[in-house]
Design a protein around this nucleic acid. Sequence first.
DNA 1: TCCTCGCCTTGGATCGATCAAGGGGGGTGC
DNA 2: GCACCCCCCTTGATCGATCCAAGGCGAGGA
Lengths: 343, 343
Amino acid sequence: MTWSGRLSLTPPTLADVAERAGVSRQTVSNAVNNPELLRPDTLARVQDAISELGYSPNRAARNLRTRASHLIGMKFNPAQEGTANAAMDRFVHSLVETAGESGYHVLLFAGDPEDPLGGYDDLLRSTAVDAFIVTDTYLGNPQAAWLTSRRAPFVAFGRPWDTPDATHAWVDVDGAAGAELATDHLLDQGHTRVAWIGWRKDSFIGEDRRSGWTRAMHARDLPTTGLASRVEDTVASGREAASVLLDEASPSAFVCASDTLAMGVLHALGDRGIHWGRDVAVVGFDDSQVAQVVPGGLTSVRQPLEQVAVELVKALEGLLSTPPVAGPGVLLSPTLAVRLSSG
Amino acid sequence: MTWSGRLSLTPPTLADVAERAGVSRQTVSNAVNNPELLRPDTLARVQDAISELGYSPNRAARNLRTRASHLIGMKFNPAQEGTANAAMDRFVHSLVETAGESGYHVLLFAGDPEDPLGGYDDLLRSTAVDAFIVTDTYLGNPQAAWLTSRRAPFVAFGRPWDTPDATHAWVDVDGAAGAELATDHLLDQGHTRVAWIGWRKDSFIGEDRRSGWTRAMHARDLPTTGLASRVEDTVASGREAASVLLDEASPSAFVCASDTLAMGVLHALGDRGIHWGRDVAVVGFDDSQVAQVVPGGLTSVRQPLEQVAVELVKALEGLLSTPPVAGPGVLLSPTLAVRLSSG
DNA sequence: TCCTCGCCTTGGATCGATCAAGGGGGGTGC
DNA sequence: GCACCCCCCTTGATCGATCCAAGGCGAGGA
């Protein structure tokens, strides 16, 4: 029997359970939070009462007393229209699931993408969340310094590029390793002229990924000059960049900083009647849905987002434990999802 | 100045603000919740104190007293790998934003996709959320009956297909109108043999969309027999279905129940060297990222998800107001994003 | 002068859980 | 027989905001 079947519209409280089980409130509380303190038979009696009444501790009351909400805040910024960055979806799910296993829920909030601090303040001051997951760190991370100064626990998905001496916890994926993986995969197939299409220079992530390509090329004494292009993250830019590179450097393969750019490359190849996958190989980045469903499939670097979520939650648990344990940064390695676009 | 700059680590309370402003606690409370009760100058003084201290009412305390959390729960199920259903991303963002404007936050929880009720119970009993947004209604909606029996406020994104007499609030997009829009668009261009590739018959949504295609065809006295196929929602199925239809019915255009299936069609056309967009037109459904970035672009039916979010929140506000106002269902019309795949 | 009214204060109770301290009964040791 | 301890459980206070009821005080009107 559950409380919702009863006449009363309010859920049962600790006191209700206590009365039914013939014990005190505190004993019920202990049964829930420190079962080992009770004699086995009392524990069983209380647990029976709990399930008979369908009791679940009132969150608000518990939060008030313990000064913890068991909520993790995360700013939710959607993927840009016209791009292929569907990673958010997969990541959010992993995070929600992992957090749930540790007793946390994820609270989303919106914020002006222009204002990196927007939204955090309110949640923090009203003690609505215990901690934050900071993900929007593509161009520096002012949130980190700000949150640190407010003593707000948080973990960043993304390295503190702009402030190497930052001490906060973070988890990131090794983009350079990913690009290197992609490039090596192409070089192993005999390609020697592997081009790079990446983001503009002010993107830390873009430069990191690019360095992986450079590293792989140089490791085999292959030149990189004239084979790289840095543009906006749009399909049109990728198409244009690929077109120029094809004219001027005639590469036999492309590694791109995103699936969006890679789609641009496919487009450029199509324009010229070049059969991609057979004549020219293409590798993207992020293993978006686009990479998965484009006819033949686009080979792409896949970020271990499930693992990222696990590490983030692990770090958060450390921060929220008493005493707080501040782990160092965690760098995970991506994998390569090979499809027809590269062989 | 903000409290985090002070020595004390605890945020300021109502009493702190009262002391600083030289008024009573009750007056501060009124300044926050019923400003019109205060004389303008006192109000200003209190507001100054509030901003000087950086005060924000403690959520837990307020929740406890008012029996409301201002949180909306939503089960977050990720898009399936290998499909093009990126709609969730856009929808969640719209929802978070719209809800935020009404003072609500969105709390995500995970749940076994097999168990439609999983996760709801806990949040409900612990009074962690004020209401739910139910989205996973693709195959019936047992959640609705269950939540209703628990008197839990909720709004569904999706019609109560299996229980037409259900009285709960819902918002949905007219899939039939979308398919009709797509079909008419093709018929207007002179196509007469427009094929349909949809989902298996047990999908209410799929049958709804299909009816739009049938309606449009019959409105112009065009036959539909032999021109339809019902398969799983995967690229491979779409490809196979398109291949069979091309052999047996030689359609000049395809309307699909999803972008995933449409991608399958593009694949099948590519296999035969048919230039899609020029020789054969294709229209997808959901305007996913894939439709937007595939070379040339895939024409697709676009759901007004921003509007859906607005209506959902509006309905929720009605349900949560006193007395509750239960609005009827809301059916919104999709639009067509025309790209090169259809002309 | 008295009354009213607008604005604010006062003191208390309340939401439902947890914290900190205390109490009673049974066993052990001397 | 007495002191002591330990286990198990109970009691009262507390978290911070809101709700409620009663009342004070000054200004303006009758």
